[in-house]
């Protein structure tokens, strides 16, 4: 598989403030990376280094060359956190100006249609809501027909419908084999699309792998039941770490969901309304960040 990004032992500091500490990373074509971390973890700094906006040494390669090379600029589309809200400029004029900057830009019309911007095309950028402006910024990132997309908090300010359109388009881009690095605080959205999750905490990668691998590491499962045998001591079951009861409703948290469930059905067969939930990315994230703080 073609390697798009390669980072070996990357360090970066602002003065004495060490932001990135010895990072190693390799990203192949078609991967969708969910880059997750608290505010100030170093996500934006890492993206800025990959975009060539911050200096790096020979240890960072993007499309086989240095970050910010002409080749990289042609192949990267980015949707950074700040939107380009220029005064006295309409959406269409702005996007045409963006397209001018690339030799390989794609026609504007299909993008306007896909992002539901057609009826807004003559509006001034200053008049747009935060969510609508974010869609314009997404259109800006797509105009160069990029092979690699950096999406930094892409759905901030978007309403539910706009977010739905956005993730549908991401799905479409994935099918086209585009590579993407996405940072977002909406972790439930990232877990739907990311082929690999990377946790960045205080400049270090504390996890790199698939969501399943992450869930296996944090394998707490919640089994919710309606139990006739509510007097039963569920805490005795294999792997159980916590039991919460509310009348006949019982929530059992286990580190070995399968075994707990098997034993439960043997010990207390008259349970109903069984639901089994694995840890969500958001819960794991909260758990990991809390653990790190406590350490």
């Amino acid at each position: 598989m073609e390697q798009i990004i390669s980072i070996k032992n990357l360090n970066f500091s602002y003065g004495r403030n060490e932001i990135i500490k010895g990072l190693n990373l390799s990203i192949s074509k078609g991967e969708i990376i969910g880059l997750i971390g608290e505010n100030g973890a170093g996500k934006t700094t890492l993206l800025n280094i990959l975009l060539g906006l911050l200096p790096s040494k020979q240890n960072v390669k993007v499309f086989g060359g240095r970050p910010g090379s002409l080749l990289a600029k042609q192949k990267i589309g980015s949707m950074l956190q700040g939107d380009l809200v220029l005064s006295n400029v309409r959406i269409e004029e702005f996007l045409e100006e963006v397209a001018t900057q690339y030799n390989n830009s794609i026609p504007l019309e299909p993008i306007l249609i896909k992002l539901d911007l057609v009826q807004h095309r003559h509006k001034f950028l200053k008049e747009l809501s935060g969510g609508l402006m974010r869609r314009v910024t997404f259109a800006q990132a797509l105009l160069s027909n990029p092979e690699l997309l950096f999406l930094d908090e892409p759905t901030v300010g978007m309403d539910a419908q706009a977010r739905h359109i956005f993730w549908e388009l991401i799905e479409e881009l994935r099918e086209q084999g585009k590579t993407m690095i996405i940072t977002s605080h909406y972790l439930e959205e990232i877990q739907q699309v990311a082929s690999r999750i990377i946790f960045l905490q205080k400049g270090n990668f504390t996890f790199q792998g698939t969501l399943n691998e992450l869930q296996a590491l944090h394998k707490q499962t919640t089994i919710s039941i309606t139990a006739e045998c509510e007097q039963y001591n569920f805490a005795k079951l294999v792997g159980v770490v916590k039991v919460e009861k509310s009348g006949s409703q019982v929530a059992i948290k286990s580190i070995d969901g399968d075994k707990t469930l098997k034993e439960l059905l043997l010990e207390c067969p008259e349970v109903s309304n069984i639901t089994v939930e694995h840890e969500t990315l958001e819960k794991i994230f909260l758990q990991m960040t809390t653990d790190k703080e406590q350490r």
Binding site: L51, G52, L53, G68, L70, K73, Q74, I76, S78, L80, G82, D83, L84, V85, L86, S87, V98, T100, Q101, Y102, N103, Q140, S144
Partner: peptide
């Protein structure tokens, strides 16, 4: 100054042009 604050110059620096 205004274009820099709004991110226009930064965006242009990220483009091939």
């Amino acid at each position: 100054k205004s274009d820099r604050d709004k991110g226009l110059t930064l965006f242009l620096q990220m483009t091939p042009t």
